[in-house]
Computed example of a mutant assay.
Amino acid sequence: MNFSKKLRTYMLYIILLLILVIEIPIIAIGYLTQPVKSDTIIVLGAKILGQDPSLMLRLRLDEAIRLYNAGYAPAIIVSGAQGPDESISEAASMRSYLLTHGIPEEHIFLEDQSFNTYQNLTNSHKIMQINNFKTAVIVSNASHMRRSLLLAQNLGIQVTGSPAPMASSPYLTAKQYVREGAAIAVLFFTGN
């Protein structure tokens, strides 16, 4: 076996090892994390279509509604700004969805200034401090749960998680896990 072939083989092993080290914890935490009763629920934003939540965001919102109705928390923070291709903020879309599903307006807190997960959690933490909320349940899709919990812990937020299901599309699910693997790698090197 020549040197070039050995190098390619070693590189392949390193890549596979990195995938295992990064992806397995993402998958495990995304399916094993359990919420505990808290002061609030934080729903992390995702794309909206027109003024309506996308499928991934609806799955998150439905999980938040389930938690709220089950008594896990008496308040919900919806977090997400208006993207360049969105007609309203993600938070406004989420609030509208929650209102139509019976969540009282006074129990919904709007955070509409954040464009990424780090900002979602930083700005939601400020809302928690203003309202004397000490604990939170983060709701996001299973693939996003590990990074969300790590960022929250880095920010000193006392959280648990409640993963929403992934979309039924294998392509979309694989894409989300690959994206999260890359984001976790960046998080390890940059801290956010």
Rank of each mutant, 00 (worst) to 15 (best):
Y118I: 07
G45P: 05
E90T: 05
E90H: 09
L49T: 11
Q113K: 15
K134W: 02
P74V: 00
P104W: 13
I48L: 07
G45D: 03
N116A: 14
E63N: 12
Q129D: 14
G102H: 14
M128C: 07
S124I: 02
P35D: 01
K37A: 07
A46S: 15
E105M: 06
D62P: 00
I108Q: 01
G102A: 04
I27K: 10
L67N: 08
I22H: 04
S96K: 12
S54D: 09
A92M: 10
I76E: 02
F115E: 08
Y97G: 05
A136L: 06
I108A: 04
K134T: 13
M128W: 03
I42K: 00
A28G: 07
N131R: 03
D52K: 15
L57H: 11
I88L: 07
L44K: 01
V78N: 02
E86M: 02
Y118R: 05
L67F: 11
N123G: 06
P84H: 04
R58L: 10
L44W: 01
G50H: 14
S38N: 11
I76Y: 00
Y118V: 07
R66M: 06
E111T: 03
G50R: 07
K47E: 04
I48M: 09
I29T: 13
L57V: 08
A70L: 14
V137C: 06
P74T: 09
L110Q: 10
I138S: 01
F109A: 04
Y31L: 11
S87P: 04
M94C: 02
P104G: 11
N132S: 15
G30W: 03
I130V: 15
S38Y: 12
E63T: 15
K126C: 03
H107L: 03
K37V: 12
Q129C: 08
S93T: 00
N131A: 09
I26W: 10
G30A: 12
L61S: 09
M128T: 10
F109G: 05
A75K: 12
L44T: 06
N69L: 09
V43Y: 01
Q129L: 15
S89C: 03
H101V: 01
S79V: 09
E105V: 11
I138G: 04
A28H: 11
Y31C: 04
I42L: 12
N116W: 12
E106I: 00
K126A: 09
I41C: 01
L59S: 06
A81W: 01
F109W: 06
N120P: 09
T122I: 06
N131P: 00
S140D: 12
V36P: 00
I41L: 08
I103H: 00
I130S: 10
Q113L: 13
E86P: 07
K134Y: 07
I103K: 02
Y97K: 11
E90Y: 06
V137K: 00
L121A: 03
I65Y: 09
F109M: 13
A28D: 05
E23I: 14
T135I: 07
S87T: 15
Q129G: 10
L55Y: 11
Y68Q: 02
